[in-house]
């Protein structure tokens, strides 16, 4: 990147992203997670940071011209994927169309790999609107930005966590109650590039009952001596042998000269 980067946390109305764009900012990484019970509205948070442009710092809440999509009933959830060559304004353009439709952008993740942009969104859509309509509404922006966009209906959206099912975390005594279930490990894998590193690692993990929660790979180093770097976050269900699985992956990849380091993820509830 030829410009300085800053990280903003925004509790938003979707129009916040448009204002990012207007203020000359470019989104290089985006993640949103809904951390509230369905239907619960967020409160705009004043930001006390003199470096943040004021147009960006204050969210408007969810106005949607009187159509608030995630109020009680009347919404369906859809996935939206968009892929294309990265350029400024993609996220803002998608968010603007969704806002105009009365949609709420809920969970999302985006990434840029070697100049290629990809984003996956979970969107709450008024149930009077079908996936084809959303896709059609996005078509002009997709055409202008040379994006491949797909919108698909999602079935029943799983609850965010068991906390929401039980309500325990909303009351005194609930926090921490679910931390004993299963284990999560982060695997760091690196070595001289060769075919089959991901296949070997993931096969071993699958056989051990592991579920890959996150994955990142990078090919770095000089062309004549490329280095492969793989990071995996892996969840193991209660009762499985996570430490044994780590040993297996270490042995499997050690056979081909690739180093594996596995660390359990420990969460401190404060």
């Amino acid at each position: 990147m030829g410009f300085g980067g800053r990280c903003f946390r925004v509790q938003w109305g979707p129009s916040a992203l448009r204002r990012f764009r207007r203020s000359g900012c470019r989104t290089v990484r985006l993640s949103t997670v809904r951390d509230s019970t369905p239907g619960q509205r967020r409160v705009p948070r004043p930001v006390d940071d003199g470096d943040v442009p004021s147009v960006v710092a204050l969210s408007e809440g969810r106005r949607h011209n009187g159509r608030v999509a995630n109020q009680s009933g009347g919404v369906t959830h859809m996935t939206l994927t968009a892929v294309g060559v990265d350029r400024p304004g993609i996220v803002a353009a998608l968010a603007a169309v969704l806002e105009d439709l009365g949609c709420n952008l809920e969970d999302s993740t985006m990434s840029i790999l070697r100049g290629h942009f990809a984003v996956l969104l979970i969107v709450a859509v008024p149930d009077t609107i079908g996936a084809e309509t959303v896709e059609a509404a996005l078509a002009p922006a997709a055409h202008r930005l040379d994006l491949t966009v797909a919108v698909r209906p999602l079935g029943e959206l799983p609850s965010l966590t068991s906390n929401d099912q039980t309500g325990r975390s909303r009351t005194v005594g609930g926090a921490g109650a679910d931390l004993g279930e299963g284990e999560v490990y982060v695997f760091s894998v690196h070595g001289a590039d060769r075919p089959g590193i991901v296949e070997r690692a993931t096969r071993s993990l699958l056989e051990a009952g592991g579920n890959i929660l996150d994955l990142s790979t990078r090919l770095v180093g000089p062309p004549d001596a490329p280095v492969y770097v793989l990071h995996l976050t892996v969840g193991f269900p209660p009762g499985s042998d996570a430490a044994g699985a780590a040993d297996t992956v270490r042995a499997t990849l050690g056979e081909v000269g690739v180093q594996v380091h596995a660390e359990p993820v420990e969460i401190d509830v404060l």
Binding site: T161, S169, A175, G176, V265, I267, D268, V269
Partner: peptide, 13 residues
């Protein structure tokens, strides 16, 4: 560095 959770942000770390 360490991974934190918080009673006031129950769904995330």
């Amino acid at each position: 560095p360490a991974r934190e959770g918080c009673m006031s942000v129950p769904d995330l770390t």
